[in-house]
Every structure is written in C-alpha cells, then in structure tokens.
C-alpha cells in the first residue's frame, strides 16, 4: 500500500496542519514518522494515496508549515505480531 507522510519540525505544526486539512474537508491521520523517511520519534501526518493529490493542492494554496512530503510503501498488518 502506498501512503504519503507529511513531515514537520515539531508536533505543533503537525497538529495545526491536521486541523487545517480537516477544515478543508481532507483526511489525515496523526502518526509516528516511519523510520524509512526520518530517524526521529516524531509526529507526522499520514495521507492516503487517494487524497494526496487534493492535499498537495491544498498545501500549495494555503499558508501551511511543514518540512516535506514523503512517499512510503507500507502494509499495516494487525496479525504480524511484532511488538516493541
């Protein structure tokens, strides 16, 4: 499954953009940043492949603060049983 992650310098930026996107009728999920795109234990926004086009348009038309948008191939599997 392809997903997109918006990365930030701090969690306040992530929470703010999450709210902005919601106000704009766009979905995002607050998520831990995947290690493949950043080495921090930080907060990012996960965007589905279906919504990324609209989200990119939103980002380009609004004053949004973020670091970058990264594409990630991932599969969430609740039966993987790999805990931390």
């Amino acid at each position: 499954m392809t997903a997109y992650y918006i990365l930030f310098d701090n969690h306040e930026q992530a929470v703010r953009l999450h709210g902005q996107l919601r106000m704009g009728g766009l979905g995002s999920v607050i998520a831990p940043t995947p290690r493949s795109v950043s080495v921090c234990c930080g907060v990012s926004l996960m965007i589905s492949e279906e919504e990324i086009g609209a989200v990119r348009t939103f980002l380009s038309h609004h004053a949004c603060v973020y670091r970058s948008v990264e594409r990630v191939e991932q599969e969430f599997n609740p039966r993987r049983d790999a805990y931390c």
Partner: peptide
C-alpha cells in the same frame, strides 16, 4: 524508536 512506528501502525 525504530520499532515503534511499525508496531503502532500494525
């Protein structure tokens, strides 16, 4: 830290 995103996601 490396293990958290995957486990949280699953």
């Amino acid at each position: 830290c490396a293990a958290l995103p995957g486990a949280f996601g699953d």
